[in-house]
Design a binder for these strands. Structure first.
Length: 581
RNA sequence: GGGCUCGUGGUGUAGCACGGUUAACACGCCUGCCUGUCACGCAGGAGAUCGCCGGUUCAAAUCCGGUCGGGCCCGCCA
């Protein structure tokens, strides 16, 4: 007898079929029992009539409970018109059961398997194997595989070679905390799980690999977030040799992203040609290096226009070389809402949150009296505020103003529902600064990582103002999430030494940290560039989720604990002893 | 490390600001009835020392202190 899938029964009318799956629900009418059988394809209704089966079979049907694993054989029959159920795919037919076998029993499930997330995440993670039976999670697993297939085909078509790099690697001096693995053979020494296969992929370029890619597992021991998994994640790690301009990398990725958004996810790509904006522009307009551009509410600079204004707070900021900027928000807020927003601004480092309300073409508020009518009119015009809008101001050092108003913009974009879930706004933020100022350590540090190429070559590194040096380094941003970073790599040891020298590190230090790579570069390293789109996060955006745990089979919770497997766990003293620990 | 927030039958919540009978509702579970349901229906039932510890009080799910756990955010992280 033919083994049939739940959703294939429609095409098997009047045929004898055998189905295997789980009991999704059971409706016992006494003299007639319906069972919705669920397998990985969907649901089919089994109908058990006492006149058509043995007594034992009917008794079995009576004793069956939800989530039992069963095997049923029977005949597919078209339902009478009035009995058809348009809500399920197989609702036109039913399987009239002849025999029934319980393959396994099931206790009452501790989470709801029907419908949308009706159980706490805590329980869902603890019983993930049950959670995965849910339609939504099944879809996530299948779509993820589909996405991988699309990407793999695209990369192969573009001459990329899939190569695996070691998972037992070395601790890297920069960046995130490492996961360390004690060596048994070399006691006192450690491997580390790679934060990314960065050095390996660059060494592949030196090794003559033209274009490389892999779905690389990356490991970082940093606190998780809603959009950041704890411990491990996957990126489409890729690198191209003989590329000296980051644009070439972006042009490879563009069609892939475009296809994933439109064809794979069925969403609208905001701009068919994925825009490029500089880091500086992103910070000025959106106050963020990963702006969500599905909505406007851009930051407007008022510094020039308010140099002589009578409002002491603004005046002082401007006199101190800072900036005054504003955003117009299409809503009037209550006093308590303003208070909450003010708290938010303060968390971002602002002293307060000055605002004006626009009514009848006039800006009013407690601070309005400090401005001339001309200045008020200029503010309205420059900010582009309309009646019913609220204008929020920031005044401080330029960086801080951008940060505060950028945080406000992002927050309000959510609050006011300005983020269209059917649209994906993708953009490249390019020209990241090579160095940045580390406020805490009060010293210069690398912006992203030390492996990037300064944009105007070695000479650029000699600039007096180190903070103005731009790297050929870029991020892909999707709906306000950082989806990828990438760069033209530094393949020249000289530049590497100089880049570190500017931070006060000598050649010895550089050699001790990056010896293998520096050494390799001496033997003819081709120029190369690449990027590493984060698969989990991109998939999350494509699926319209805002919690990255929703799209992963077995995520750890917010404390880095696998509540299902109970990892991390204590270890047998014998194992420790063997490692010399 | 810090801030905010949540913790009540198997599951999800209400009750808590203002302490006071038997802790309520929905889903699920159990028993019985039911031959066309698909959120099946009907009747009945079981199931919770309200995360834990301590305090205040005649009396604590409710107030106070502490602690543990979850979630979001900052720090951190590309």
């Amino acid at each position: 007898m033919k083994r049939t899938l739940a959703t294939d029964v429609t095409g098997a009318k009047d045929e004898q079929v055998k189905l295997q799956g789980w009991v999704h629900s059971r409706r016992d009418h006494g003299g007639l029992i319906f069972i919705d059988l669920r397998d990985h394809t969907g649901l089919t209704q089994l109908t058990i009539r006492p006149e058509e089966v043995d007594k034992q079979v009917f008794a079995a049907a009576e004793s069956i409970r939800d989530e039992f694993v069963i095997e049923a054989t029977g005949t597919v029959q078209e339902r009478d018109e009035e009995l058809k159920n348009p809500h399920i795919a197989t609702g036109d037919v039913e399987v009239v059961v002849q025999s029934l076998r319980v393959l396994n029993k099931a206790e009452t499930p501790p989470i709801h398997i029907h419908g949308e997330d009706q159980s706490s995440e805590e329980n869902r993670l603890k019983y993930r194997y049950l959670d995965l039976r849910r339609e939504k999670m099944q879809l996530m697993l299948k779509k993820r595989a589909e996405m991988y297939k699309i990407i793999r085909e695209y990369m192969e078509k573009n001459d990329f070679t899939e190569i695996a790099t070691p998972v037992l690697a070395n601790s890297s001096p920069e960046g995130a905390r490492d996961f360390l693995i004690p060596s048994r053979l070399h006691q006192g020494k450690f491997y580390a799980l790679p934060q990314a296969p960065q050095q390996f992929k660059q060494l592949l370029m030196v090794g003559g690999v033209h274009r490389y890619y892999q779905f690389a597992a990356c490991f970082r021991d940093e606190d998780p977030r809603a959009d950041r998994l704890y411990g491990e994640f996957y990126q489409l790690d890729m690198e191209m040799s003989f590329v000296e301009d980051g644009e070439e990398v972006r042009e490879i990725i563009d069609p892939l992203i475009s296809g994933l958004v439109k064809d794979f996810a069925g969403k609208t790509l905001q701009n068919d040609n994925i825009p490029r904006i500089t880091y500086a522009e992103a910070m000025e307009k959106y106050g963020s290096d990963k702006p969500d551009t599905r909505f406007g509410m851009e930051l407007v600079d008022l510094t020039e226009k308010l140099t002589d204004c009578g409002f002491g707070v603004f005046k002082k900021a401007i006199d101190d070389g800072g900036a005054v900027k504003a955003i117009a928000v299409p809503k009037q807020f209550s006093r308590s809402e303003i208070d909450k927003l003010t708290d938010l601004a303060k968390q971002e480092g602002a002293g307060g949150l000055p605002y004006m309300i626009v009514e009848n073409g006039v800006a009013t508020s407690s601070i309005a009296k400090f401005f001339s009518d001309d200045e008020l009119a200029t503010i309205l015009e420059t900010v582009g505020a309309k009646d019913g809008d609220t204008i929020f101001f920031g005044s401080d050092k330029r960086d801080k103003v951008n940060k505060v108003l950028g945080g406000m913009r992002s927050h309000l974009g959510n609050e006011l529902g300005l983020k269209d879930p059917d649209v994906v706004a993708a953009l490249w933020v390019i020209d990241f600064p090579f160095y940045e100022w580390d406020e805490k350590a009060n010293k210069l540090d690398f912006g992203h990582n030390p492996f990037s190429m300064p944009k105007d070559g070695v000479e650029a590194l000699e600039k007096e103002d180190k903070l103005s040096i731009v790297a050929d380094q870029f991020d892909l941003v999707m709906n306000g999430y950082e989806a990828s970073s990438g760069a033209v790599r530094n393949h020249n040891p000289e530049i590497m030494y100089r880049a570190f020298a500017a931070l006060g590190y000598d050649a010895e230090y550089v050699e001790s940290k990056f010896g293998a790579m520096l050494n390799a570069f001496k033997y003819g390293a081709p120029p190369h560039a690449g990027c590493a789109p984060g698969m989990d996060r991109i998939f999350m955006v494509l699926m319209g989720e805002d919690n990255i745990r929703e799209i992963i089979a077995f995520p750890k919770n917010g404390s880095g604990v696998d509540v299902m497997m109970n990892s991390p766990s204590e270890i047998d003293p014998e194992q420790l002893k063997e490692l010399g620990l």
